[in-house]
Computed example of a mutant assay.
Amino acid sequence: MPQRLRPTRRFPVALTETAYRTLRRFSAEAGITQDEALIFLLENFRSVTDEETLPHRLRLFKAELAAGKA
């Protein structure tokens, strides 16, 4: 693995079953590990998200979180 892509930080991640299946499917289709898939997605966040729909999706997600806490 190139020096630039060598992971230097680790953190525990909790995922929903749907998110985990999506990550596994994406990494398998891309031919990379799940760690590498997360690195790719986070380092390229702006180019892999639709800036017009992201705020709307984030509002929906936050509403679901709030509803779950109530």
Rank of each mutant, 00 (worst) to 15 (best):
R25M: 10
E52L: 14
R9Y: 12
I39P: 00
L60G: 09
R21L: 10
Q3C: 06
I39H: 06
V13C: 03
T22Q: 14
S47Q: 13
L23I: 10
M1Y: 07
R9N: 14
L5R: 12
D35Q: 10
D50E: 05
L5F: 13
G68K: 01
K62L: 15
E43P: 02
T33N: 05
L15W: 09
R9H: 15
F26K: 04
M1N: 09
L65Y: 10
V48F: 03
T33D: 04
L42M: 05
R10K: 14
F11S: 12
E17K: 12
T8F: 10
Q34R: 08
G31Y: 02
F11H: 10
Q3W: 07
T16H: 00
A19H: 11
L5Y: 11
L15D: 08
M1F: 04
L54P: 04
T33W: 02
Q34Y: 02
S27V: 06
S27Y: 06
T18M: 10
R10S: 15
E43F: 02
G68A: 05
E17C: 01
L54D: 07
R6V: 13
M1E: 10
A19V: 01
P55K: 02
M1D: 08
H56N: 07
P55M: 01
H56E: 13
F26N: 04
L41D: 02
T8M: 11
F61S: 13
E64T: 06
R25N: 06
P55G: 00
E43G: 04
H56Y: 12
F11R: 15
A30G: 00
V13E: 03
M1W: 06
F61G: 09
R10N: 10
T53S: 09
P2Y: 07
K69G: 10
T53M: 08
L15Q: 09
D35V: 13
R46Q: 06
L60Y: 08
P2R: 11
R57P: 03
T18P: 04
R9P: 06
R46C: 02
N44G: 01
A63N: 14
L65W: 07
R6G: 01
L38N: 03
K69I: 13
A30Y: 08
E64L: 10
